[in-house]
């Protein structure tokens, strides 16, 4: 019988801990996609995914937060039922919500850079409210811009028409999620460090 010998190159603790958090938050992102809340302003129900995007940026920072969202997209493309309404597959990355999906990693990196900067993590509870509000607003604008522009290009309709389908009906719900993210940070229960 043929045997093979090689030494084991262990992954360091400084990588394992944030990696595990990134993977679990990618799963949380997927789990919230399954919690559909009927929404009177749109035929599509809303989920809490945007809230998780905010929380990933706030608590994992730009690097591991961005990785967590890349992981979410990769797992969904590989067949995990974690895209909106429990769907999966590479096709979803190019479907009607593709613009939103591709913007998630960028939005998380944006929030992470605003709140944590480029050097390590800090407790978002210690960051001033205006900084957090600006970070979340910029992330939301980025996601809406990407989602609307992609849908307009994909279907071949005007930006205003696309905004009526993909953005405007969801603004009230997403402002509420932004307020919820701020309330979670202010509660100060979770320490990301």
């Amino acid at each position: 019988m043929e045997t093979e010998g090689q030494s084991v190159d262990l992954v360091g603790a400084s990588v394992v801990r944030p990696f595990a958090r990134a993977a679990i938050l990618a799963a949380l992102m997927g789990a919230t996609a399954l919690v559909a809340i009927p929404y009177p302003l749109s035929p599509a129900p809303v989920t809490l995914q945007i809230l998780v995007v905010f929380l990933v940026g706030l608590y994992l920072g730009p690097y591991w937060g961005g990785f967590s969202m890349v992981l979410y997209l990769t797992a969904g493309a590989a067949g995990a039922p974690i895209f909106s309404h429990g769907n999966a597959g590479v096709g979803y990355l190019f479907a009607e919500t593709g613009g939103f999906l591709w913007s998630f990693p960028l939005a998380v990196v944006l929030v992470g850079l605003f709140v944590h900067g480029t050097h390590g993590l800090r407790d978002p509870g210690e960051v001033s409210l205006p900084v957090i509000a600006v970070a979340l607003t910029c992330a939301m604008v980025l996601m809406y811009a990407a989602g609307t522009a992609y849908y307009a290009w994909l279907i071949g309709i005007g930006l205003v028409e696309a905004a009526f389908v993909m953005a405007i009906p969801f603004v009230p719900a997403d402002l509420l999620k932004m307020a919820a993210a701020v309330a979670i940070v202010r509660a100060g229960v979770i320490d990301p460090t």
Binding site: A23, I24, A26, A27, F67, L71, A75, A80, I82
Partner: peptide, 10 residues
Amino acid sequence: TGVALVFRFL
């Protein structure tokens, strides 16, 4: 590994 963990923990 992350993809496998997402499937496992979902």
